Computed example of a mutant assay.
Amino acid sequence: MSEASAGVLRLEPLRAWRFVAGKVSALGAVTSPPYDVLEPALVRRLTDADLHNMVRLILPRDPGLGPSRYDEPARRLSGWQRDGVVIQDVRPSLYVYEQQYGDAVLCGLVGSLGLDPARRVVLPHEDVMPHWVDDRFELMEATDADLEPILLAYGGGGVASDAVDAARAGEPWLVADTENGAHHQIWRIDDPAVLAAIAQELAGHEALIADGHHRYAAYLERNRREPNRPGTEVGLAMLVDNDRHPLTLDPIHRIVPGLSVDLVSSRTPEGWQVLPGRVEGVPDRIAITDGTSWVTLRSTEGQVTPTVALLHRVLLPAWGVPADEITFHHVLSDAIALAGPQQAAVELVAPRMDQVLQSAARGVILPQKATSFGPKPRVGLLFRTLD
């Protein structure tokens, strides 16, 4: 990576791999959500849906095998390439990806993101868990591939966003429907003049990592270990102009072992009001339940820091409960179902976008799993290899 390019936002064209429609039951049937939102029941359904579903690559969960658990997915991917189940695009392109899911629309560019270890233009906002970084690195190392695009957002797009919308006016290159009811379309941009104009405009922006902090950390680790190997200076990513095509922003709830409603009521520090019940309409509230009763916490001092950060930095230490055994749940009902007298469910509200952006711009990292941006790119429509 040259000094001239290291400090600018880069999304480079690539020759993406994709599934061949005639070789699988359906293009949507071989895709999956990202690894970290897959519940066991969905994994089973997707595994049964098609022998080529991507969960067979990204989620072989047998920790006892260590790094070698990804050897079989690597052999499987090589077989798909050899047999023509997946093929590589003939020309380097940026790919316009649109996903419609209910009222939500995900729309942006997929390409090879230039890595930014100095955090000058690619801005993380969440902390990571080392074991998940190791896990994603081991998958990338075994398969020599980036199978799951990370998601980034920027604002104020012009030429690049215009190119996205212009491409969408044409016939899509790929169309797929998935089991959750989402409709996916992809278009290619390979005109050199358009690609050059996009690159010039993006070079003036910063981008927030919206989803995929562990995968991005794995990209960085791969490049750190093999800095001279072509292809390690970039990673598969989707870039969205959040002004033109806004992402959704949802919370991720917690199960906290050792936490009880009585403990919250008796040991919550000054600056917080403890309200009985699950109180709606309170800005930046935290609601806690043991599955039977609820209490709601409200800050009495006002705040600019996202509530999830105060939970981890202020409240958990005050309650005297460790954070290392917390589990994370995107669906509140899943967390409530696990709550009990000595294992409380913590319901959070999503941080505001301005809070996330301000934290990232200041270099302040929120706790792991602080946000859930969406919709998330579907895994298996496009991926890249290092060769």
Rank of each mutant, 00 (worst) to 15 (best):
D241T: 02
A218W: 00
A237G: 07
R222H: 13
D250F: 04
E226W: 13
R224Q: 15
T248A: 14
E221Q: 15
A237Y: 10
L236S: 02
L220S: 05
M238N: 06
L236V: 14
T248E: 15
L220V: 04
R222E: 13
Y219N: 05
N228I: 07
Y219A: 07
N242Y: 07
M238W: 02
R222D: 12
L220N: 04
L247N: 06
Y219C: 05
V234H: 09
H245D: 13
N223W: 11
E221G: 08
N242I: 04
Y219S: 07
R225C: 11
D241K: 01
L249I: 10
P246F: 13
N223Y: 09
E221R: 15
R229C: 08
N242A: 10
L239R: 02
E221K: 14
E226Q: 12
Y219D: 08
T232F: 02
E226S: 15
L236A: 03
D241W: 04
A218P: 00
R222V: 12
N223D: 13
T232Q: 05
Y219R: 03
L239F: 05
D243P: 01
P227I: 02
A218M: 00
R224G: 12
N242V: 06
L220T: 05
T248D: 15
M238F: 03
V240K: 03
P230L: 10
N223R: 14
R229E: 11
R229G: 01
V240D: 05
L239W: 03
G235R: 05
N228H: 14
D243G: 10
T232L: 01
E226V: 05
N223A: 14
V234W: 05
